[in-house]
Design a protein around this nucleic acid. Sequence first.
DNA 1: TCGCACACGTTATAGCATAACGCAATTGAT
DNA 2: ATCAATTGCGTTATGCTATAACGTGTGCGA
Lengths: 132, 132
Amino acid sequence: MNAPALTKNQTLVFEVLEKADGPLSAYTILDKLRDHGFRAPLQVYRALEKLLEYGVVHRLESINAFVACAHPEQNCHSHGIVAFAICESCGHVMEFHDHEVDHRLMDWTRGKKFKAEKTTIEIRGLCEACAA
Amino acid sequence: MNAPALTKNQTLVFEVLEKADGPLSAYTILDKLRDHGFRAPLQVYRALEKLLEYGVVHRLESINAFVACAHPEQNCHSHGIVAFAICESCGHVMEFHDHEVDHRLMDWTRGKKFKAEKTTIEIRGLCEACAA
DNA sequence: TCGCACACGTTATAGCATAACGCAATTGAT
DNA sequence: ATCAATTGCGTTATGCTATAACGTGTGCGA
Ligand SMILES: [Zn+2]
Ligand SMILES: [Zn+2]
Ligand SMILES: [Zn+2]
Ligand SMILES: [Zn+2]
């Protein structure tokens, strides 16, 4: 999905996520945008829906939070499944791709004739700094 | 984690999940147990917490639901990461393990010195029957 | 018998997400 | 220019998911 020009609300939400040093919940984003006129969760969720569709934002299912894509120059959707390592201490997130993992999972789904639409890979634990 | 004898509430919750043909939300479980005296979400969540700890139930992060382990004879925790394919049409869930995927992810975490605690792999899409 | 751990019950609250309505701006034929 | 369709936006209300906080009872070893 190629991203068309962002609307005002989409831009505001995206900028908040870009500036953040970790994932944010929809309600945290809302609070950060109250000064810009945001009043209701739907304003955030509607913007997020589009940003997710465009592939410039990812949703972290295991912590109900959202993060700006770490590979803005590439198109994350185009090179396979996105995986995340999430530090449960400092909240930092690392985004990566592994084609071998993609292939193994695709092999499995093909064998089961399962039509995969969206795959989630999230590793929670402690980053190097926090594990020390 | 080896499972000690289950308490009354844990047994009730586990039986509901075993009999179900798909994942259930905590509140759905609650409704199914009202006739057995359940009145509040915490009764379900507390039982689930233990069942997850014992490894006889899994949590599906991407759909906020719980499912009985499909491999009761084995110890799911003992042979690596558990992966799920979830049909978004009929709700059916397939649970599987893939050591090669485990190794690739472990290689990555080792390289980053990331201490993995819990890994989620969930594929959402359409099962063979529903994709036809 | 005392202290502790644990399961349990209840009420209240916090956190996450969407339904439903209406309005305004944009677009793109006709 | 006009109409219809689409899209974004704002608001209110509601629903779903999860936990905090407090109290009770029971079993068990020191
Ligand atoms: Zn990305
Ligand atoms: Zn950290
Ligand atoms: Zn299992
Ligand atoms: Zn299906």
